[in-house]
Simulated scan of single mutants.
Amino acid sequence: MGYVTSLFARKMVAAVGAAIDPKEALAGVGIDHDAPWDPKVMIAAEDYYDLLEKMARTIDMTDLPVHVGASMRCDDYGALGLAWKAAPNLMASCSRIERYARIWTGVVTYELRPDPRGVLFVLHRPGERRLGMRLSNEATLASAVSISRQVCPVPFSPIEVFVQHKEPRSKAFHEAWFGCPVTFDAKLDAVLISHEAMTRPNILGDEGISRYLISHLDEELAEVPTSPPIVGQAKDLIARGLSEGTPRMADIAKGLGLSVRSFHRRLSEHGLTFQALTEQTRRELAEGLLRDERYSLAEVAFLTGFSEQSSFTRAFKRWIGTTPAIYRKAQM
């Protein structure tokens, strides 16, 4: 079962105000309203999405995720937030989120991706793009910008924000708060940050404190369970079968000794679909092969299950935002 920190649920409920009963809302996801706020207390991601969707039936949620993201503070994230502040620059701050986010969430991963205009801070969240997930993604992107502003010595705004789901009735509040264009119905969820902003020294950058915090975070990360065995085993089978084309769910389930129904249920428990897992495996395999110059682009296309290199190029551009050739050159 995927999880998220209870901090997000508490922030969402607090932002709604008197429109709902906060004690009842939090109790519905297993949180004691009167207990101290502890970001290490986790709740099931599906319960969190259910909570957001229930609130959306009562109030207009269009602007709320941005309000909640804007309310996030570095200190809310404990040692990870302190490591964000103590990093020498914003690039290093984002790198720490990319590496250590698994301490706080089991459903989201982050990626720093080069872009001709700067660096993309990409949010990956697999699973059905239900309303609760979409609202959560917006809040997460807004929180990334909020804590960036807290360490930047000059006023900070991204170059552009990308959101995969459809545009709301109005995006005026989004663009006013982010201070840049917000593109909905995009191919990814991400914040595009300029090279200048990424390399500008943070206000509180401290190398000594950073070393201590990184050591502490490494210890915490080592205690976090890795991907569930079923997911890792399924990805291995998918990767081995890609050279023969896109694997069928029935074949992978059989290789795991499961029925299709049981396999589907096990993936659902971790917020995954077979299609999403196959796509993720293909992308990760492609990225790894492209970093190895022994494989030509045609061979990488074949090994990731594409019959034509042009199809692979289109898919890779959809995943990463650039062509395989440009990605390989950047990695080299």
Score class of each variant (00 low, 15 high):
C74T: 12
C74S: 10
Y77N: 03
G78Y: 07
A79H: 11
L80Y: 09
L80V: 01
G81W: 14
G81T: 03
L82P: 01
L82W: 12
L82D: 10
A83E: 05
W84D: 08
K85Q: 15
K85Y: 03
K85R: 14
K85D: 12
A86V: 03
A86S: 14
A86L: 05
A86P: 06
A86Y: 12
A87N: 06
N89M: 01
L90T: 04
M91E: 12
A92G: 07
S93W: 15
S93R: 08
C94Y: 14
S95P: 04
R96M: 07
R96G: 06
R96K: 14
R96I: 04
I97F: 15
E98T: 15
R99T: 13
R99V: 13
R99M: 07
Y100F: 15
Y100D: 00
Y100T: 00
A101C: 06
A101E: 09
A101K: 11
R102F: 10
R102N: 05
R102M: 04
R102K: 13
I103F: 02
W104F: 10
T105L: 10
T105C: 15
V107G: 12
V108Q: 14
T109P: 04
Y110P: 02
Y110T: 05
E111N: 13
E111H: 11
L112N: 05
L112S: 02
R113Y: 03
R113N: 09
P114T: 01
P114Q: 08
P114L: 08
D115R: 02
D115V: 00
P116V: 01
G118F: 09
V119F: 07
L120S: 09
F121T: 00
F121G: 00
F121N: 03
V122G: 00
V122A: 14
L123E: 15
P126T: 03
P126C: 03
G127P: 01
G127D: 11
R129I: 04
R129A: 11
R130D: 09
L131N: 04
L131G: 02
R134T: 05
L135R: 04
S136M: 12
S136I: 07
N137A: 04
N137T: 12
N137V: 15
E138H: 08
E138C: 05
E138M: 11
A139I: 02
A139E: 07
T140W: 12
T140N: 13
T140F: 10
L141Y: 04
A142E: 00
A142S: 04
A142R: 02
A142V: 00
S143Q: 14
S143F: 02
A144Q: 10
A144F: 14
V145K: 09
S146I: 00
S146P: 02
S146L: 02
I147L: 05
I147R: 05
S148A: 10
S148L: 12
S148K: 01
S148R: 01
S148G: 09
S148D: 04
Q150S: 06
C152E: 07
C152L: 13
C152H: 14
C152N: 13
P153W: 06
P153K: 04
P153S: 06
V154C: 08
V154W: 12
